[in-house]
């Protein structure tokens, strides 16, 4: 565990050392800010909720989160520092997991910046705290899954931009059109698609219902992509 913490600390610091970290945070806050503005969340007579922001944020995260995690492993491959890392007495899992936790922590810090809207809602209205907290919990869970996928994309290539595209495009196709796929599919395919519908899962949380199967879905699928990432890192040793 100490190795995981060491990797995570270094990784998190290097995210804050590089300009990419700040650009990603600025981009994310700008987009969510515009959504809050355009949806007239703070207009008189509107319900005191961040519903419109919650509706679109997971869609934005399909692009933003792979940008956070893209350098995690690909940069190590590119600069060759993977050699000093994988010859240190730590397991490949500890290395991948430490990097994963760092990207996730960065995402949570970024998400925490949007809490300012909640403060405004509390000042000017009377928000439903239960549903809001559950929605934030849902956003963290979306981050848990998307970050794991982003790390997987990063494990595949030594080029950050390729890692970003490999991470963002499948997530985007999957999340943006998930309801379309579900409505068109039939039989057992529909059943499966319904189960893995990220947006559907998230909306449960956004409505205020924290369910065990939702929690299990996000954690288990994140664990799956982390497992695959570790296997990719291991397999690269054999080349």
């Amino acid at each position: 565990m100490r190795n995981v913490t060491a990797i995570m600390q270094r990784e998190l610091l290097s995210l804050f050392w590089s300009p990419i970290g700040y650009i990603v945070i600025a981009g994310f806050l700008l987009i969510t800010g515009v959504i809050v503005l355009v949806s007239e969340t703070f207009a008189p007579g509107q319900p005191a909720s961040l519903r419109s922001m919650f509706q679109y944020t997971p869609l934005i995260l399909t692009i933003i989160i792979p940008a956070i995690s893209m350098r995690a492993l690909s940069e190590e491959y590119r600069t060759g520092t993977i050699e000093t890392l994988t010859t240190a007495p730590i397991t490949d899992f500890e290395m991948v997991f430490g990097k994963y936790l760092a990207s996730l922590a960065f995402y949570v810090i970024m998400l925490a910046c949007t809490l300012v809207y909640l403060v405004l809602l509390e000042i000017f209205g009377n928000p439903d705290w239960g549903a809001t907290l559950s929605a934030y919990f849902g956003l963290v869970l979306v981050g848990v899954l998307f970050t794991a996928f982003g790390i997987f994309a990063s494990s595949l290539t030594r080029n950050q931009i390729v890692a970003w595209i490999l991470g963002a495009v499948p997530l985007l196709l999957f999340a943006w059109f998930s309801f379309y796929y579900v409505s068109r599919a039939e039989g057992w395919v529909r059943e499966v698609l319904q189960q893995v519908n990220v947006m559907g899962r998230f909306e449960q949380f956004a409505r205020g219902s924290v369910t065990t199967d939702g929690l299990v879905f996000f954690l288990a699928s994140a664990a799956f992509f982390l497992f695959v990432s570790v296997k990719v890192v291991e397999s690269r040793r054999w080349r």
Partner: peptide, 20 residues
Amino acid sequence: PLYPEMRVREYLDFRGKLHG
């Protein structure tokens, strides 16, 4: 290969942690 953004002490400290 080294991490160019780290300071020498930070880097050695990080490596020391990895070695327990």
